[in-house]
């Protein structure tokens, strides 16, 4: 088995455990590269079916190109798509034009997700986060319980070993299932390449720039790059020392922004 085979098998194992263990799981999808790998793996795990809804938390600041990819992919893969917008916050005027990015991210992503969860009663959310993205994510479990307030008790996480996980949640609580936890950014690209997974075009160089990580339009910045193919990107990643989320403004707005966001329920 190659390393990618191992990662793929592990992710499929985790997804099948989640599907078996929970009453009403859902999968989060941002149209980004990681969550497209997640979709792909789910199709593999369930032999072409997608036995749970796919949820997109739409901040209303999405790149138009990503929205086009959203409707294309939904038809292409054939899944039940739930799009959720925190309309209440937008009505209050919360937005990048008026508010700091940490607050906006909290309102339009985390609170939106809370609303979506409450409205639909999901007891597990399958997400595409990876440990190598951020030091706080490095501490995550494959099955990570969140309380009713979405809080992550990272000081007292349940032990997890020998393929045994937390597959129960209490009323109002949910479990984040994170099948890509062990993947690195390079693994993702190698897998996308190997499997020919469809991707939005913004990850590839245009006019000397490409997006390495995609979030809301106002706060996602491209990096200088001539990488037009996945091979180019992999070569680039082998030498780069710039962190993946460097282009994401909300992470750097203040010290420990990620920790604050995550403790409050951000992915």
């Amino acid at each position: 088995m190659t390393h990618l085979d191992e990662l793929e098998s592990q992710s499929i194992y985790l997804m099948r455990e989640a599907f078996h263990g929970f009453e009403k799981p859902a999968m989060l999808w941002s149209m980004g590269k990681d969550s497209n790998v997640l979709l792909w793996l789910a199709k593999k795990a369930f032999c072409g079916h997608m036995p749970f809804p796919v949820v997109h938390i739409d901040t209303t600041y999405e790149f138009p190109e990503m929205l086009e990819f959203r409707s294309w992919a939904q038809k292409h893969y054939g899944f039940d798509l739930t799009v959720w917008i925190n309309k209440e916050a937008r009505a209050r005027g919360i937005g990048y034009e008026t508010t700091d990015p940490v607050t906006v991210t909290h309102e339009l992503k985390t609170v939106a997700l809370q609303q979506c969860l409450a409205a639909n009663g999901y007891d597990a959310l399958i997400t595409g986060i990876r440990r190598d993205e951020d030091s706080t994510r490095a501490k995550e479990r494959y099955f990570s319980p969140r309380n009713a307030d979405f809080e992550w008790d990272y000081k007292d996480q349940p032990p997890e070993f020998w393929n045994h996980f937390t597959t129960e949640s209490g009323p109002g609580e949910h479990v984040r299932v994170q099948p890509l936890l062990d993947w690195t950014e390079i693994d993702i690209w190698r897998y996308l390449d190997r499997e020919k997974v469809p991707l939005p075009g913004m990850y590839f160089s245009r006019n000397g720039e490409r997006y390495r990580s995609l979030g809301c339009m106002p706060i996602s910045k491209p990096v200088k790059s001539d990488a037009k193919t996945i091979d180019d990107i992999i070569e680039e990643l082998k030498v780069t020392k710039v962190s993946e989320r460097a282009g994401r403004a909300q992470d750097h707005h203040e010290r420990n922004a990620m920790q604050k966001l995550r403790a409050k329920g951000f992915m």
Partner: peptide, 14 residues
């Protein structure tokens, strides 16, 4: 946009 319903896959990869 480099995307359309008929072009597959949508990514402008080599």
């Amino acid at each position: 946009s480099l995307l359309s319903e008929t072009t597959l896959p949508p990514a402008p990869r080599a």
